[in-house]
Design a protein around this nucleic acid. Structure first.
Length: 400
DNA sequence: TAACCCGTTAGTGAGCGTAA
DNA sequence: TTACGCTCACTAACGGGTTA
């Protein structure tokens, strides 16, 4: 006997009980593709924002920050349309947004305008987020989505009232995530401001007796650090690490598509061995923040091009770690970098950078203070992740 | 014939290797 | 140590072919 699949989601509001209806998406939406920017005359007083795939990275569900505006109403996308990329890797990243105003868009994007009497646009928005664009798209060469994928796509929908209720519930969770992200932004801004004040000595700590700490010295990093980086001459299979500008030290396999230099057949006997509590940076990338601190990582190796160093007794690692994130340090990196097409900061010039040096007790006070802010930021980040997991679970269970 | 599709090329950023 | 080139991933944009 064939058991008919019940057409209702696992998780549902109590007041609804009807089966969901199977429909073809093509019958409920108007599909629009964007067109090439060469078709528009952009001007500062243009009425309509022009959105490219790139803009989807830095915008929120409804908010866009366009760099281009045009008065052309050619191929205008109505507000409350669902926007997403139709070509390229952005499909894999599932970047879906809703237009809050009429706008223009690039040829690599697509928009769906719902028939409001049958399909609530925010319900469709969450449905596509749940289904994921790449599952609908062709992914043979460059991922792409066309009308042929949208028109025959079958989905199950409840009544309009239930659609709205589901969408509003999920929107409330999105709002919570948005507020937490805003809070995190503010805290990060505050941290930047406070760090600036501390290093300009507009804000000073007192010692345990409530008295002022001694005046700061200003010393070159060459006097406060020692270059390290013994070669892996014995060709030992130490774990191989990279350093990137977001996470610092990172297993190289994670940075490069699951393959590290050893697996690629490179000569790791030239690599440098990193011990605990060592700083390392890429001299061609330190200008974008590619510097890391090994902390508890011990006996790992990095590419021969990295500059590695340890701090001397007068300089606390925790203090230096915070100072490396300051505007002043980044400014000095640019000032002391050399080169033609590409800028480099090798140890010789790195050593010339002067940094403010409080006594060790004050360095630790400063580090502890900033680390407290870091902990708060980490806590909010964790709350954001939890909310996102909750949202993901709901998306799985509230749709058929 | 306009709209759509999609192959292709150019450009950019990030990270690393290696010859001189 | 230094400078350049390579690879990979990604986006922007053009433009010729196809389709409705």
């Amino acid at each position: 006997m064939q058991i008919e699949k019940k057409l209702v989601p696992k998780l549902r509001f109590r007041e609804f009980s009807n089966d969901w209806e199977r429909v073809r998406l093509g019958k409920l939406v108007e599909i629009k593709s964007g067109i090439s920017p060469s078709s528009y005359n952009f001007s500062e007083d243009g009425k309509y924002p022009f959105i490219k795939v790139e803009e989807l990275n830095n915008c929120e569900k409804y908010q866009f920050q366009s760099r281009f505006y045009s008065n052309s109403s050619n191929n205008l996308i109505e507000f409350n349309s669902i926007l997403f990329p139709k070509r390229g890797a952005a499909i894999l990243n599932n970047k879906i947004r809703i237009s809050s105003v009429p706008l223009l868009m690039d040829s690599n994007m697509m928009a769906l305008k719902c028939d409001d009497s049958k399909l609530y646009y925010e319900f469709l928005y969450y449905k596509i987020i749940k289904e994921k664009l790449y599952r609908i798209a062709d992914t043979s060469t460059i991922p792409q989505l066309n009308n042929k994928h949208i028109i025959p796509y079958n989905l199950f929908i409840p009544t309009l009232v239930e659609q709205q209720k589901i969408a509003k519930f999920l929107t409330a969770i999105d709002t919570r995530i948005h507020n937490l992200e805003k809070k995190k932004d503010l805290l990060e801004q505050y941290k930047r401001g406070v760090i600036q004040k501390i290093f300009k000595q507009e804000l000073r700590f007192k010692n345990g007796d409530g008295k002022d700490f001694p005046e700061w010295k200003y010393l070159q990093l060459g006097k406060l650090t020692t270059k390290t980086g013994k070669k892996n001459k014995e060709n030992i299979n130490y774990p191989i690490y990279s350093i990137n500008n977001k996470e610092g030290f990172l297993p190289q396999g994670e940075q490069f598509d699951g393959m590290d230099s050893n697996e690629r057949g490179y000569d790791i006997s030239l690599y440098k061995v990193i011990k605990k509590n060592t700083f390392a940076y890429n001299p061609a990338r330190i200008n974008v923040g590619s510097i890391g601190f090994s902390g508890k990582l011990d006996d790992i190796i990095v590419s021969s091009l990295y500059v590695c160093f340890k701090t001397k007794e007068a300089l606390e690692d925790r203090y230096l770690k915070q100072y490396l994130n300051t505007f002043q340090f980044n400014k000095d990196v640019l000032r002391f970098s050399e080169g033609g097409v590409r800028q480099y900061l090798f140890f010789e010039n790195f050593s010339k950078i002067k940094i403010p040096l409080p006594n060790r007790m004050e360095q630790l006070k400063i580090a502890s203070f900033v680390e407290t802010l870091d902990k708060k930021i980490a806590l909010i980040t964790q709350q954001i992740e939890q909310s996102k997991s909750y949202r993901k679970a709901l998306l799985q269970q509230m749709f058929v």
